[in-house]
Design a protein around this nucleic acid. Structure first.
Length: 486
DNA sequence: ATAGGGTTAG
C-alpha cells in the first residue's frame, strides 16, 4: 500500500473561495493528498454528498483511487459508493485496475448482480474484462463454494471477449487446488490437457493441490504421470512434494526425500531449506531445525527473511520466546529487514506466554520500521486480550482500527463476538448484537452459527426486542436455519 | 499477470 502524506492531520485542501483571479485562469498547485482524511470522509458522508463533493476534492489519479479502494477493502459498501461517486463524474474515468478492485469487492459481498454489471461496463468502455478480471471472479466463486459455477464462467470467458489460454487455464487450476478442489481441477485437466497443451506448471499446480489435501500418494502419481509424458520435474516440483510430506505429518519420508534430492544432485535452494527448517521445527524437532538452518549457509544457500521467520516461529512455539528474540536480533545485525510476518510471529509468541506489554512494544516498533501493523497483527493481539479477559484493551485496539488505516475484517468481528459470550452478561450480548449489525453493514456475511448463538444469547438474557431485530436481519441475509419459518 | 518456503482459527 502506498504511503502518501500520512502526517497531515485533517483535510487541508486549498481554498479557492477567496482567490483573486478566476479559477479557470489559475494554475492550481497539486493539492496535498491525505489518504486517511479522504478515507474518513468517504466513511462518514452519505452517498449523495459523496457524489457532489468527491470529484473536485483532489486531483484524482488512478494510483490514488487504488490506494483508497484498498483502504476501504473491509468496508465493501463504502468502497463501491466511492467507486460509483467518482465514476458519475465526467472528468474522471476509472482504470481497468480500479474496475478489477470494484469487481473483487462486489464478489466478496456476493453481490453478483453488481459484479456482472461492472464487467459489462468494463467491456463497453473497452477496458476489459481481461484475464486478471476473470482470475478474480473465478477465485471468488470458488471461495464461496461455487466451484461448478466457476467452471461455467471459465468456459464462457471468451464470450465476454477474453479468450482462454494456457496461462488462464493454469491459474484457474491453481485457484481450484488452493481451495482444496484438486479433484475438480484434475477432471478439468484431463478434459482439456490437449486443447491447452498443458505444461510442467500445470502438473506442479495439481501435485500441490493434492499435497494441500494431504494426499501425497496422489501427488506422487501426478509426478509420475508428468515424467511419463516427457516433462522433467524441477526444484519447484520437488519442493512441493517435500512440503507435502510435512503437511501430511510424514517427517520420515520428508527427510528421505531431502536426502534423495541431495544425492541426485538436484539443485537445493532456499525454499527447500525453509521448508525443512519449518517442517522439522513444527514437528517438535527443534535441534534438527536449527542444524538445517546452520547447514544451509555452509551449502552456499543464504537464508531469506522467510527462513528467519520459519526459525523464529519454531523457537516461539517449541522452544523459548527469548531464544526467538535472539534470532530476531541476529537477523537485524546481519542486515535483514524484518517484515510483517516476522513481527506477527514474534508478537504472537510474546502474547502466548502472557507478555502482552512486550508484544505491544514490538507493535509500536514495527511502525518505526516502516512496517505498519496489519489486520492480522491487530487481530492476534485483540484475540489474546480477549483470552485474558481484558475486553477494554481489546476494544481500544478495535476502535483504533476503525478510525484509521486498517479497518477490521471478518475475523476481527468474529473474535470480538465470540469474546462476548464468556462472561454471560446481558450487556455483552447486546454488544455482540451491535457488532453483528455493524459487520453486516460493512458487507460481511456472518455464519448461521453466529446469528443463532447471538439470538439465543439475547433471548436467554431477556433482550427479546433486540432479538427480534437480529432475527429480521438474519432472514434478510438468507442465513436462517434450514427449515425455518418466520 | 499461470507453480514452491514464513503469520491464522482452537
Amino acid at each position: 500500500m502506498s504511503k502518501l502524506h500520512k502526517t497531515a492531520v485533517g483535510p487541508k485542501f486549498p481554498d479557492f473561495s477567496s482567490a483573486k483571479t478566476p479559477l479557470k485562469h489559475q494554475i492550481a498547485p497539486p493539492p496535498p493528498v491525505d489518504v486517511t482524511s479522504i478515507t474518513n470522509l468517504v466513511l462518514k458522508a452519505n452517498p449523495e454528498i459523496l457524489t457532489q463533493k468527491l470529484p473536485t476534492l483532489v486531483q484524482w489519479t488512478p494510483e490514488l483511487v487504488h490506494t483508497i479502494l484498498k483502504r476501504l477493502w473491509n468496508h465493501g459498501p463504502k468502497a463501491l459508493q466511492f467507486f460509483k461517486a467518482l465514476d458519475s463524474h465526467l472528468s474522471y474515468t476509472h482504470s481497468a485496475t480500479a474496475f478489477d478492485y470494484a469487481i473483487d469487492i462486489a464478489a466478496r459481498m456476493r453481490d453478483y448482480k453488481t459484479l456482472w454489471a461492472l464487467v459489462a461496463q468494463m467491456r463497453a468502455r473497452k477496458l476489459g474484462p481481461g484475464p486478471k478480471t476473470f482470475a478474480i471472479i473465478l477465485e471468488r466463486y470458488v471461495a464461496s463454494g461455487k466451484a461448478d459455477k466457476a467452471v461455467d464462467v471459465f468456459l464462457s470467458m471468451h464470450k465476454h471477449g477474453c479468450p482462454q489460454d494456457l496461462t488462464s487455464f493454469n491459474s484457474f487450476l491453481d485457484v481450484l487446488c488452493k481451495a482444496k478442489q484438486a479433484e475438480i481441477a484434475y477432471n478439468l485437466f484431463k478434459v482439456f490437457r490437449r486443447k491447452f497443451r498443458v505444461d510442467m506448471i500445470s502438473y506442479n499446480i495439481l501435485a500441490n493441490g493434492y499435497c494441500i489435501m494431504k494426499r501425497t500418494p496422489k501427488a506422487l502419481e501426478i509426478l509420475k504421470e508428468m515424467v511419463e509424458r516427457g516433462l522433467e520435474p524441477n526444484v519447484m516440483t520437488y519442493n512441493i512434494i517435500l512440503k507435502g510430506f510435512f503437511r501430511a505429518g510424514q517427517t520420515k519420508e520428508a527427510w528421505e526425500f531431502f536426502l534423495q534430492m541431495k544425492r541426485r544432485k538436484c539443485e537445493i535452494d532456499v525454499v527447500t531449506y525453509t521448508t525443512m527448517v519449518h517442517g522439522f521445527g513444527v514437528a517438535g524437532e527443534v535441534e534438527r531445525s536449527r542444524k538445517l538452518f546452520d547447514e544451509m549457509v555452509g551449502a552456499g544457500v543464504l537464508p531469506s527473511v522467510a527462513t528467519y521467520n520459519a526459525l523464529i516461529q519454531v523457537l516461539c512455539k517449541k522452544d523459548n520466546v527469548e531464544n526467538a528474540i535472539l534470532v530476531f536480533d541476529e537477523m537485524l545485525r546481519k542486515g535483514y529487514l524484518p517484515d510483517v510476518t516476522t513481527y506477527n510471529v514474534l508478537i504472537r509468541g510474546l502474547c502466548h506466554v502472557g507478555k502482552m506489554d512486550r508484544a505491544v512494544e514490538y507493535m509500536d516498533k514495527m511502525k518505526e520500521d516502516e512496517c505498519e501493523p496489519n489486520v492480522q497483527t491487530y487481530n492476534l493481539v485483540i484475540r489474546y486480550y480477549c483470552d485474558d479477559g481484558e475486553f477494554e484493551k481489546a476494544f481500544e485496539l478495535f476502535e483504533k482500527m476503525g478510525s484509521g488505516h486498517c479497518l477490521p475484517n471478518l475475523d476481527t468481528y468474529n473474535i470480538l463476538i465470540s469474546a462476548m459470550f464468556v462472561r454471560k452478561k446481558s450487556d455483552d450480548l447486546v454488544v455482540a448484537g451491535k457488532l453483528l449489525i455493524e459487520m453486516i453493514d460493512r458487507g460481511f456475511l456472518p455464519q448461521r452459527f453466529t446469528f443463532n448463538r447471538i439470538l439465543n444469547g439475547l433471548l436467554l438474557t431477556g433482550n427479546q426486542e433486540f432479538a427480534r431485530e437480529i432475527l429480521r436481519l438474519q432472514s434478510r441475509s438468507g442465513r436462517l436455519p434450514r427449515h425455518f419459518r418466520l
